[in-house]
Design a protein around this nucleic acid. Structure first.
Lengths: 164, 164
DNA sequence: TTGTCTGCAAACAATTTGCACGGTA
DNA sequence: TACCGTGCAAATTGTTTGCAGACAA
């Protein structure tokens, strides 16, 4: 899912770029950190911490989920990873600061589609004017049904716990 | 917070209307159910289950939080109550099916502002056309900063756990 | 009377944290 | 070598569930 409608950089190269950035920031490049970044880089999906943990452990069984959380924290602070709250499901993470896009979250299958921030701009402008509310495109999520699920009927925004 | 920009019906009358609806639906009108509805009716705020539990227990100490959850479930199924996921904070509930409005969620103070669905319509239309995605206005939340918090600087959408 | 709801406690899932140790710089 | 980052286990938080009893209809 999470079919990116636009370019997000060349896969693989991104891993090095991110790690380089983390290094310059004074952080240490550990096995866990690298593994997390690689997992995130290897997919267009928006992954939960558990998803990432499982993927990381496939290669490095000793790496604990709590370490994944801490790596994600570190990456978030550095602005290299963003998170998104999708309904009642766990938080999903993805590579890159997403200042430049919003999200469409399917309430049925849990898919997350990225949309350029430009789509959101009109609403952002209007609520700024009418409510004094500053929309942060990065933390923007529109609930609804993706094209695949729309044919299956309405939703209660209560998808099964697994997503994707 | 949650300054309703439009009318939501006369307070108090709503309680009876909701309970009446529940009765007609075949449900039983218990002390807990009535208390939950009254709490929701008494505020424009969007309350967490814990908030509601506390308020309910002020009048009826014996009523358990799990009962509040079950009452909210019942009310949700009946379409009398809607819930909203705000960032990493707990789910908030409010009276009325909110098919007709969206939400602005402040990432700093946790305030939830209601906005008429019309504001969201342009985006809804555009993503429907471009992505085949059907936006459900009820499950729509724009993250950002409310007017009060905007002056205090940017956010990480990581407010303190308590909100309001 | 009867079956829905409730109270309680325990289960659960996601995430965080304290502490001593290990590995990166 | 000096710390940052890690592993583990335990604590937290929000929410759900099983069960026996209570109460609305």
């Amino acid at each position: 899912m999470a079919l990116s409608g636009y370019d997000r950089g060349v896969r693989g190269e991104r891993v090095d770029a991110v790690l380089q950035h983390m290094r310059e920031r004074g952080g240490r490049i550990t096995t866990a950190l690298r593994a997390v970044v690689e997992v995130l880089d290897a997919t267009d999906d928006h992954l939960t911490a558990q998803d990432i943990g499982a993927a990381v452990q496939a290669a490095h069984p000793a790496i604990h989920v709590s370490t994944v959380y801490r790596a994600l924290d570190r990456l978030s602070e550095a602005g290299m990873v963003s998170h998104l709250h999708v309904g009642h499901a766990p938080v999903v993470y993805h590579l890159g600061q997403d200042d430049h896009h919003g999200h469409l979250v399917c309430g049925r299958c849990g898919a997350v589609l990225d949309v350029p921030a430009t789509v959101m701009r009109p609403v952002a402008t209007q609520v700024a004017r009418d409510y004094g509310f500053t929309v942060e495109p990065s933390h923007l999520a529109l609930g609804g049904l993706c094209s695949g699920c729309a044919v299956a009927g309405p939703t209660d925004a209560r998808p099964s716990h697994t997503h994707g």
